[in-house]
């Protein structure tokens, strides 16, 4: 379970989140929805422990691991597609399965600069799938991918993270539909008790 209590966060002197509280269960698919710039990505970063709140607290299950598809691909340019996935996962079978799930097994030896934008996105998704974890955070995961492939990848994610917690941020309704998430509509500014 993720529990946030009286969470506040600001970038410099600009407050983004003020006195926000919510709880999330250990499993299920949740989509954070809200207008652009209301702090959805910041909220995901706080959940992923990539940012520290200015006040309040956010607690996760002890030792819970987080996997994430960032808004940017964040691939190592000097590693091939396969090496990028293997970078976070030592299990070669999982690496192979993840790359096959995103239809990139045949391109596994190519470096990011040799892959199209969509292919690079798929490597980033494969990396998150291969890593596994208790919580999967997807920040605009399918940008630049075709619908058919999105469905296949979403099915894999569903299967791999069946009993886990998936948190999704997307502006695309089609993309959201692939996951049939429970939508949490965020107020702008981000404040109050969401539960």
């Amino acid at each position: 379970m993720i529990s946030a209590e009286h969470l506040s966060f600001s970038y410099g002197s600009t407050p983004v989140i003020e006195d926000l509280s919510f709880t999330l269960p250990d499993s299920g698919v949740f989509r954070f929805d809200g207008p652009s710039g209301c702090g959805k990505t910041t909220l995901l970063r706080l959940i992923a422990d990539l940012e520290r709140p200015n006040s309040g607290s956010i607690t996760r299950q002890p030792n819970a691991t987080v996997s994430m598809v960032f808004q940017e691909n964040r691939l190592l340019p000097w590693l091939s597609a396969e090496e990028n996935v293997a970078f976070v996962c030592g299990d070669s079978l999982r690496v192979e399965r993840a790359l096959k799930a995103v239809s990139l097994w045949d391109e596994r030896h190519k470096f990011p600069e040799e892959l199209s934008g969509g292919m690079q996105r798929r490597v980033a998704i494969a990396r998150a799938i291969a890593y596994g974890g208790d919580i999967l955070i997807l920040d605009e995961p399918f940008t630049g991918l075709d619908e058919q492939l999105c469905q296949t990848i979403a099915d894999t994610i569903y299967r791999e993270f069946a009993e886990k917690l998936i948190l999704l941020v997307t502006h695309s309704e089609e993309e959201a539909r692939l996951f049939s998430p429970k939508t949490i509509t965020l107020p702008c500014p981000l404040t109050g008790d969401l539960t």
Binding site: A48, D49, L50, T65, V66, S67, M68, F70, E72, R74, L76, L79, F87, V88, R127, Y131
Partner: peptide, 19 residues
Amino acid sequence: QLLEMASLFRLSKAKQIRR
């Protein structure tokens, strides 16, 4: 951003330095 990604995936400092 790469360092942040590596820390999210809990990669060791040695691996971050090497890779």
